[in-house]
Computed example of a mutant assay.
Amino acid sequence: MARIRTIKPEYPVSEDLASVSLPAERTFVCLLTQADDEGRQRDNAAVLNGALWSLRPEHTALDTEDELRQLAETGLICRYTGCDGRQYLHVTKWHEHQKISHPTASRLPACPVHEPAGWCGKCKAKGKGCARPAPENFRSLPEALATPAEAISAQRPCTAATDLTPAVDVSAAEAAAPGKAAG
């Protein structure tokens, strides 16, 4: 659920934001509206792209992934894996810039880097270190994908030389018997 957030007057002169592309800057500002009251949210580029760029069909989930990578490299967000195995992110200086009037406790795991003593959202363990930082190759694209023909053959090991006879063997005598109905 989107929320009303504040943008500080010094936003236009932020050196961190100036070091990322303009689309990444917009993604960052829009992330503020999607984050919970602790600055956390699920890290899924496809879902975030739909929420942040819904009226821009030319902007893809790959674009959003690249922008999230830029924001993480600059230190504006931190990406990590929760105790449930899912990917999360949070705005690193959330509490410096957002003052929430009636905050709701987050249901998402705390960041192991910036909030090591925080409550875990899933297992409710405090400071147990159940969440872990994202690996260096976090969300990197996989190696070259298999061609459709390779993918189909990997799923179905059937070749042209495979015997395609039916599994039920009907003898010629039974098939030729005139008095029996099929079925």
Rank of each mutant, 00 (worst) to 15 (best):
A176Q: 15
C158Q: 07
I152R: 14
K128Q: 11
A134Q: 01
G127P: 04
P133A: 01
A131S: 13
K122R: 03
A146P: 15
A146F: 05
P166R: 07
D163E: 08
P166L: 05
R132W: 01
S153K: 15
A161G: 08
C130R: 04
K128A: 14
A173Y: 02
A177C: 08
P142I: 03
C123A: 00
A160N: 10
T162S: 05
P166G: 14
N137G: 11
A167P: 00
A161Q: 09
P166A: 11
K126L: 08
N137K: 11
A131F: 07
E150L: 06
T159P: 00
A154I: 00
A176P: 00
K124N: 05
S171T: 11
K126A: 10
E174F: 09
G127K: 04
L141M: 12
A173G: 04
Q155F: 06
A125E: 00
A154R: 15
P142Q: 06
A173M: 04
V170E: 02
R156Y: 11
A131R: 01
R156S: 03
R156F: 13
A154S: 12
A149Q: 12
P142V: 04
A131L: 02
R156T: 08
S140V: 14
A172G: 00
N137S: 14
Q155M: 12
P148Y: 13
A146Q: 15
A176W: 02
L145Q: 11
T165Y: 07
G121C: 09
A173Q: 13
C130I: 02
E136P: 13
A172I: 09
C120P: 03
N137E: 15
R156G: 01
A149H: 09
P148L: 15
A146L: 13
S153D: 01
C120L: 03
S153F: 08
L141Q: 09
C130H: 06
A125R: 03
P133S: 02
E136N: 13
A134D: 03
L145K: 12
P157E: 07
A149W: 06
